[in-house]
Amino acid sequence: MTTAFPPVTGIPARLPLDNVDTDQLIPARFMSTPRAEGYGRFLLHDMKADTPAANLPEGAQVLIAGRNFGSGSSREAAVYALVDFGIRAVLAPSFGDIFAGNAVNNGLLPARVAPEALAQIEGAVMVDLQACTIRHAGGETPFDIDPVWREKLLNGWDDIDLTASRAGEIAAYRTRRRAGAPWSIPADEQE
């Protein structure tokens, strides 16, 4: 069976701090850069100066992080920085809600792992989204992900494509909304 999200393997990078927000993942001043130029070099840019762990090893595909990873700003550029650096899965006790959604939209797995279980992960890992487990030298650790997001990652679904098939329902809703709640239309837009 083919999947858009094959298992990810390797030695995980570790950034064992809580509340690493998206301003840390990519400082605001880099966000005017076109994506085509690559965002990997901006990852954790300023944090590297005072936090040795923020210098992630080149080639890492898995990142083990602390609670509330990716909190704060909705900037999807934080996900671009991780993805362009080569990270494909982040294992953390919890994630910022907007960050986690952005991650899934860019093929990056936000896997929730209980803090005690996270501490027991040793050596190289294999993160298997099909089975929702992390295999490593210390054994096998399960992780959590919203089942809808799991499907989306495994199938590589794109929302705009999915929605295209709903055009009829959207048009019907639009008509209903305009007739039933005319007040919801900006005052200068009334048809």
């Binding site: 909705s74 999807e76 959604g101 939209n105 959207i170």
Partner: peptide, 22 residues
């Protein structure tokens, strides 16, 4: 609610957004 760039593109293109109820 705040959304990411992929979702912004979806809203621009369709005026709708997929969401799971919090």
């Amino acid at each position: 609610f705040g959304i990411g760039a992929t979702e912004v593109a979806h809203v621009l293109a369709t005026q709708t957004i997929w969401q799971k109820r919090p």
